[in-house]
């Protein structure tokens, strides 16, 4: 009898950590996102969907269940109470996969063609040591937009939407340890393609040999069997740093200590390692509403674009910026300054 009673044990409901919808310091709404698909996706695109969800962490539904009969309205209905502000919608028509990035509930919607894509697994497969430290996905990534500066209105709108897709960084309060990932969107004006990359950020002290760094980092007894003297361990540089020349531009002096190795007093090198997914996008269309409404911008009749459309675009861009100001965003140094980079 006792055995049965044991089996009947009460199952604890999973603890749902309620994410705050508003940043407690800045009183600003945290953007949240849903990544889902419309229509049936082939296997690799499904994987891409999962990768995108992971990229959008932590303010996204990682295990969003979607059914065939779910309509866009269903997602929209859920999005309201959950405070979801962005939809990333993957679809696969006969020709080429599409990615739509939409603001809820009213739009606008950006439609991209996905010209090329590589999954996170593909990227990891090319690397000798794919990197995934603990807590990598605990904070939302930084976003860098580059090359969008001197384009048309549609590019401006794109930048605004992508800047708002992740919570803004307040450089007064930000912790450097929370900056672990970076998403890069690079616009190539010649080909009209946007390169979408996802990197993990790693900091290394400059001028310290790898052996010592590893020793300090891992606290493991090093293998001294090949050495004559302990001094060799310190004096002998290993194979040397691979990219000593590049490091000049990529060195930072930190505001605070970061981890065991990176001290505020020392210079640290910023190293990026790609994590994937990797996308090559082409902006095709901007719609006024959420996957509906008039087309503000259309790649295919760019010559025919009327003045009215341009006005509409300007108006939306204005609205967007106002919305941005409404959320009382702090300076995102990385975002705004990259206009100057090129």
């Amino acid at each position: 009898m006792a055995r049965f009673r044991n089996r009947k044990m009460h199952v604890k409901p999973p603890v749902v950590k309620k994410q705050p919808s508003v940043d407690h310091i800045r009183g600003e709404k945290i953007p949240k996102s849903f990544v889902f698909s419309r229509g049936k996706l082939p296997c690799s695109l499904k994987q891409l969907e999962l990768d995108l969800r992971k990229l959008m962490l932590p303010h996204t539904a990682l295990r969003l269940k979607e059914k065939k009969r779910n309509t866009l309205k269903d997602f929209l209905n859920v999005a309201g109470p959950m405070g979801v502000t962005h939809f990333l919608i993957l679809s696969k028509p006969k020709t080429i996969p599409h990615l739509r990035v939409a603001r809820t509930p009213q739009g606008p919607t950006l439609t991209f063609e996905v010209h090329e894509y590589s999954l996170a697994a593909d990227v990891a497969r090319t690397q000798i040591r794919p990197r995934c430290p603990q807590g990598l996905f605990n904070n939302s990534p930084l976003i860098v937009l580059s090359g969008f500066g001197n384009g048309g209105q549609h590019l401006k709108l794109t930048t605004v939407i992508f800047q708002n897709i992740f919570p803004a960084i307040d450089i007064n309060t930000v912790k450097l340890s929370s900056c672990q990932r970076i998403v890069l969107l690079n616009y190539n004006a010649e080909t009209n393609l946007i390169d979408f990359r996802h990197y993990s950020i790693r900091l290394q002290p400059v001028g310290v040999s790898r052996r010592i760094r590893n020793f300090v980092q891992s606290h493991r007894v090093p293998d001294l069997s090949s050495l004559q003297d302990v001094s060799d361990f310190l004096a002998k540089a290993g194979y040397g740093s691979e990219s000593e020349a590049d490091e000049e531009s990529a060195t930072v002096s930190l505001a605070t200590d970061l981890g065991r190795v990176n001290r505020a007093s020392m210079k640290s090198a910023v190293k990026l390692q790609e994590m994937g997914p990797r996308l090559t996008l082409r902006l095709v269309k901007i719609e006024d509403g959420l996957c509906s409404g008039g087309a503000i911008f259309n790649q295919y009749d760019i010559g025919k674009s009327t003045k009215a459309e341009e006005d509409a675009m300007e108006a939306t861009a204005e609205e967007e910026t106002e919305a941005k100001q409404e959320t009382d965003e702090e300076a995102e140094a990385s975002q705004e300054t990259d206009e100057d980079i090129d």
Partner: peptide, 8 residues
């Protein structure tokens, strides 16, 4: 490009 952004 990304590194520059991070450094900044």
């Amino acid at each position: 490009v990304a590194t520059k952004g991070v450094v900044k």
